[in-house]
Amino acid sequence: MATSRLETVQTGLGMQVKRLIQDVPTRWNSTFYMTASLLEQKSAISLYAADHQLPATLTASDWTLLEKVNTLLAPFEEITKQISFATSTTSEVIPSVVVLKRLLAKQTTEDSGIKTMKATLLAAMGTRYQIVEAEPLYSVATILDPRFKDRYFTSADNSKLARSALAQEVEKNESSSLQTTTTEAADPATKTPRMTAEPNTSSCFTGLYEEFLQEHAAEQGGTSSTATQVQIETYLAEKTIHRTESPFEYWGKNKERFPSLAATAAKFLSAPSTSLDSERLFSTASNILDEKRNRLSGDHVETLIFRKKNLPMYLNLNPKNLNYQEE
C-alpha cells in the first residue's frame, strides 16, 4: 500500500516511478544506493510524509547529512566499479588505495557532521591495506603498468622494494625456458588485447591521480650493471601514459624495446583484480544451459560460453568480420 501511494505521489509530481532501494548489510554499496535513492525521491518522500502523517520523518538537517554521506561514499562506489571491469588488473589496487586515502585525509568546510565517519573509513583502510605496497603481487603489477609505474608508492622504501621485486621477477623469467612462450602471450598479434574503458568525466578523483604523478617524478637510479637494470631504469624514466589508455596496447607496441619487462608484464597484468568476471561467467553458463536447453553436451556448452565471451573482442579487432554478428 505504501509503495502504491508513493507511486501516486511520484506520478503527480511528474517524476519517473521508482521504488526506494533498501540497504543490505552484506553489500556495502547498497548503503550508497539507498541514500542516492532517498535524495532522488526527496520531493516525493516529503509530500508523502505530509499527506500520510508518517511516525518518523527526515528533518532538513537529516537531508543535509544524507547528502554529505552520499558524497563521501561516492568515491568508494567509483573505485568498486572501476576494479569490476573485465579489463581491470591487480595494478590498479595500490593507486586506488593511495588516492582514496588522500581524498579521505583532506579536510574541507563540508565535513561538518561526517568528520568521524571520514576518520573511521580512513583508519579502516589503513588497517586493511597496511602491507599492500609490500606485496610483490601488487607492487610488481603496479610498477609494470605504464599508467602508474613507481609514482604511487607512499615511501621511498616501498618504491625500492617494488623495484627489487621487479628485477627478481624479470631475472627469473629470463632464466626460464618458457620465456619465449610468455613473450608471445604479450603480443597482440597472437592474443586479443582487452578493451580500454571509457574515461569517467565525472570522477570523484579529478586531479588526484595527476597530483601523485607530479609529486613522485621519476627518480634516476645508479649506474646500470646488467641489461635487466638498464631496461627497468629506462622504462621508469619515461613519462607515464594517460590513465585512460590501455597498458596492454603499450606493451604490445614496446615489447621489442623492453622484451624482458614485456614478458613479466604478460604474467602480472593478466588477471582481473576481483573475481567478478569469473562470476559473470557462471551467469553466462546458466543462461545457455537452462530447463529448455538441458540436452546440450558439456563440450557444446563450453564452446558456446567461449564464443560468448571472446567473440565481441574478435569482432572489434576485425571490423571486416562484423557479418558474423548477423549470423
Rank of each mutant, 00 (worst) to 15 (best):
N158W: 09
A271L: 15
S159F: 08
P259N: 02
H242D: 13
S283F: 00
W251A: 05
Y209N: 06
T240P: 08
R280D: 08
T182Y: 10
N173C: 07
K172H: 10
K172C: 15
A266I: 00
E171C: 11
S202I: 10
S202K: 15
T201P: 07
E256V: 07
E233G: 12
L208G: 00
A266Q: 01
K267N: 11
K255G: 07
Q168T: 12
D277F: 02
T228D: 09
W251H: 03
R194E: 01
S177M: 02
E279R: 07
E174C: 14
F282P: 05
S275I: 06
P193S: 11
I232C: 09
A165H: 12
T190Q: 11
L281T: 11
A185G: 04
S203P: 10
R280G: 09
L208W: 03
R257P: 00
H242W: 12
A218T: 04
G207M: 08
S273P: 10
L269V: 03
L208N: 00
A189L: 10
H216M: 07
A167I: 08
H242S: 14
A189H: 05
A189I: 09
P259L: 01
L276K: 05
P193Q: 04
I232G: 14
G221Y: 00
A265K: 08
A227M: 14
Q214W: 05
E245M: 12
K160L: 09
S176M: 11
M195D: 15
Y250L: 01
A263R: 01
A189D: 08
Q214P: 01
S159E: 10
L276W: 03
S175W: 07
A165L: 07
A263T: 04
G252R: 13
S202Y: 12
T182N: 06
N158E: 13
S159T: 14
L208I: 06
N173Q: 12
T228R: 05
K267L: 14
Q214E: 08
P188E: 02
P247N: 05
L166H: 04
K191N: 15
L269G: 03
R243W: 02
S278N: 06
T264P: 06
S246C: 13
S273Y: 11
A227W: 13
S202G: 10
Y209H: 08
T182E: 03
E256F: 05
E249S: 14
Q229I: 02
E184T: 10
L281E: 07
R194D: 05
T226I: 00
T226V: 11
A262V: 00
A265L: 06
G222T: 12
F282I: 13
A218N: 09
E210G: 15
A227K: 15
